[in-house]
Design a protein around this nucleic acid. Sequence first.
DNA 1: GGGAGTATACTTGTATACAAGCATGGTTAT
DNA 2: ATAACCATGCTTGTATACAAGTATACTCCC
Lengths: 215, 215
Amino acid sequence: MIDYKNLSLANQVHQVIEENILNGVYKAGEILSESKLSEELGVSRTPIREALTRLESEKLIGITPTGTVVLGITDKDVKDIFTVKMKLEPLIAGLAAENISEEALVKLKDIIDQQEFYDSKDNKERVRNLDTEFHDTIYAECGSIVFQSILSPVHHKLLKYRKSSLENAERSPHSIGEHAGIYEAIKNRDKELAQKLMLEHICHAYENIKKGTKK
Amino acid sequence: MIDYKNLSLANQVHQVIEENILNGVYKAGEILSESKLSEELGVSRTPIREALTRLESEKLIGITPTGTVVLGITDKDVKDIFTVKMKLEPLIAGLAAENISEEALVKLKDIIDQQEFYDSKDNKERVRNLDTEFHDTIYAECGSIVFQSILSPVHHKLLKYRKSSLENAERSPHSIGEHAGIYEAIKNRDKELAQKLMLEHICHAYENIKKGTKK
DNA sequence: GGGAGTATACTTGTATACAAGCATGGTTAT
DNA sequence: ATAACCATGCTTGTATACAAGTATACTCCC
């Protein structure tokens, strides 16, 4: 399977703008102009528009004939996202335990190993990106395009909040340990355990985020 | 709130292509060409591309540098969609019972009245479109952009299957009756009842669809 | 006849030019 | 001074031209 993502300017633009929104560089309420983005990023309006179109379907921005406004995500959105994750993601973990391929198992193990490595090097950003990769891999291997298409964008939106959570020095090793547990359960094809551990993993992540946003 | 949907060619194109995919006019595996769509629909490639970009994020098509392939939805997707709906939509109904505005209540009532009217006129298509409007209104009124953005596209994907279900002569009045029950519960701000009735409504719809696809 | 190489006709991806609408600010007239 | 009107510069929306890559089919050579 060829990964075309690296080839397209529009995809790169999408990632950049998405990250800027989630990290607060483009703040909620701010007006984005296609022309300005075009100049800033050094590409024409066409790939910019394509990226904006996708960001709109993710509800991160709102496009009107008179301007494009940043919506971003609120604390309430985060709460709702975790509600969705708690309801659906254990199911996914169970499905993955049934359907995952051997290559994907190797990939999951590799992600966990890398997470441990970069955590020991205190490279938070890599750990965070690998967290996304871990969950995305499970989404991709559950065998359901419906669940994948719902959870993948939803999980991505937690970027900023995962950032504050995983930068909590205590949370990071716990999270990686939980990943390892989930991996083992999936590897052993233990559907029930995978579901249980995934639910706990999400609950812990949410509790940690709540702690982080309150202080 | 102004509805800009009617103004844009790209939105119209999106609707047309989406409908053609869901209704099987464009079959799974078929290759769509931007140029051909452009000629067929009488617009330039630009709005076509915008529509295809959105359809890709809905996972109804897959875009590669060598062509655009129709993915459509399978029976398994429908099963997964109902799993998602059963998990999330009762929550939404409960939230709507808490948050819905008076105008939206009037709108829901009006939708139900129209459904009864068009059902008596045997206008299945209008009944079906009103079903979408009923659920979309509840999504919009639950006060959560996250839930709305997940459930709205997911519900839309059932178009073809809703078609076969609601064209079942017996299901249609039942469905409308269930809508009325949900409306009453939301109007009375009875959260628990709204949740319960919504779950039942979805279960019935799914059972009916299963019956329809098996024969 | 079969195989290799090339040309052609597609595909998506990108850039740019043009159109229409709106908001804002300046200017002019009262 | 104030109000109305007009022009200017923005916005998104659309069309079109060009670029790069690929698959296929045809032709030529062996």
